[in-house]
Design a protein around this nucleic acid. Structure first.
Lengths: 238, 238
DNA sequence: GGCATGGTTCCATGATAGTCGAACCATTAC
DNA sequence: GTAATGGTTCGACTATCATGGAACCATGCC
């Protein structure tokens, strides 16, 4: 146990994020999809040389992970921790009014439903999370979050292979603070699996080139039906 | 509803944090205490001119708030949102091994108990939070977190003036993700009030010039007694 | 009133870093 | 085999920004 402590070097991480092109790259990767260097260069509006330089830095610092397939290099956010920092900064930027005008999907769509790294965020993400807890499918105890027996049945009826998820090393259930509604939504392996199911069931699809998740009317009704709330005095009063 | 969206400008916020001196200033302010420009200059190892310049930028960007008292200018972290971003970056830096060697308190003390903006973080912060929930003093429902009637009695017996807290605009109970143990601790007005009580009851005191909170042996026993856990099969198994 | 101290502003200097044209390498389609 | 495409590296250029000496202003102590 060394005497000298090690001070976290937040400046070097923040400095990497603190460039317009790299920030755009990181936010583009927050869709959860792997993107190529050329795609990211286009998104960030820089040349491929500049993008290559930036991506090298991000990979070296382990904010971004890379996988080569033939001549394509696919990049993705390296971990949920990195995603959480970006999401946190996005939330702070919104609250400070630190925004830059851009042409793209309107804010309400992002607030409504979006991909947060690999799980559903926004109003619908929070709705899902609240329902899971209120219906007794999730419980908080000594561990941060646990799926109940009842909850396992529930998500298996949705087509989630719980045994496969539990066999992985990744945490099954984590809460992730949603900056847009200031309440938590579900992250972790189950959060990711549920979003996959939402896409597989065609309740919703990604909006092209953004993080927005577009629910169909049928899909929204299905979501609200499956992720309902138990009647209670408090709920009905609202 | 405008067509053009506004993209959060995370680069400009991150760029402010991405300077060694400014990062040191922000982390110094994470103790929750208001510090003067001279103190911050010393902590950041820059001259008062440089510190003044940096503080101006941080105040303009609303990451830091300032209050003048005579010739002294007292600075503090502007909001919990800013504190959350810094805390998140600290967690990521630790996990990436992005550290710089410095002489100071050893890491275990920070992990054990520290001030997180204005409330208790670390193992003891998480213990408090888990106990409050397990004992039914806090409950999660449609709102993020609510204090139960039983919970109000409990914290009033600790000397917290709940009526005064509730009369304020600030959210009473919020959860704040603790990077050091990966579980939540209690933030919000109640979180701050409980830390004040811990100091007032002399269970613990701040370690000089750091964020570390030092519990005495008596104080730790008192904390564990008051914030105990209900016997249950799952708890006893652990 | 004079001096000490906290803090700000100005400006010159030096350091750092982003950008892209050109050239090159690797992969793959035809 | 050749050409097209994805991507990297090099180096010159430009932009941005941190730093602190000097000077100044405001507050407060003696």
């Amino acid at each position: 146990m060394p005497d000298a402590t090690k001070t976290p070097d937040i400046a070097s991480i923040a400095r990497l994020i603190g460039d317009r092109a790299r920030a755009t790259i990181l936010m583009g990767l927050m869709s959860g999809r792997a993107l190529t260097a050329t795609e990211l260069a286009r998104a960030a509006r820089v040349t491929k040389q500049t993008a290559s330089s930036h991506l090298s830095k991000l990979v070296d610092a382990r904010l971004v992970a890379v996988e080569s397939v033939g001549r394509h290099r696919y990049f993705r956010i390296a971990s949920h921790d990195v995603g959480a920092v970006i999401e946190n900064l996005v939330g702070l930027a919104h609250r400070l009014g630190a925004v830059q005008v851009d042409s793209g999907p309107v804010d309400p769509a992002m607030r409504r439903a979006r991909v947060c790294y690999d799980h559903l965020a926004g109003d619908f993400g929070v709705l899902m999370f609240d329902s899971l807890r209120q219906q007794g499918h999730l419980r908080a105890d000594g561990e941060a979050l646990a799926l109940t027996g009842k909850g396992k049945d529930f998500v298996e009826r949705l087509g989630v292979d719980i045994a496969a998820l539990e066999s992985r090393r990744r945490t099954l259930c984590l809460s992730c603070l949603d900056w847009s509604v200031r309440r938590p939504h579900l992250a972790g392996a189950l959060g990711a699996a549920l979003l996959d199911r939402i896409f597989a069931l065609r309740w919703a699809a990604r909006a092209k080139g953004t993080r927005v998740v577009m629910f169909s009317a049928v899909g929204e009704r299905a979501l609200r039906t499956r992720f309902a709330f138990q009647a209670s005095p408090r709920m009905n009063r609202a």
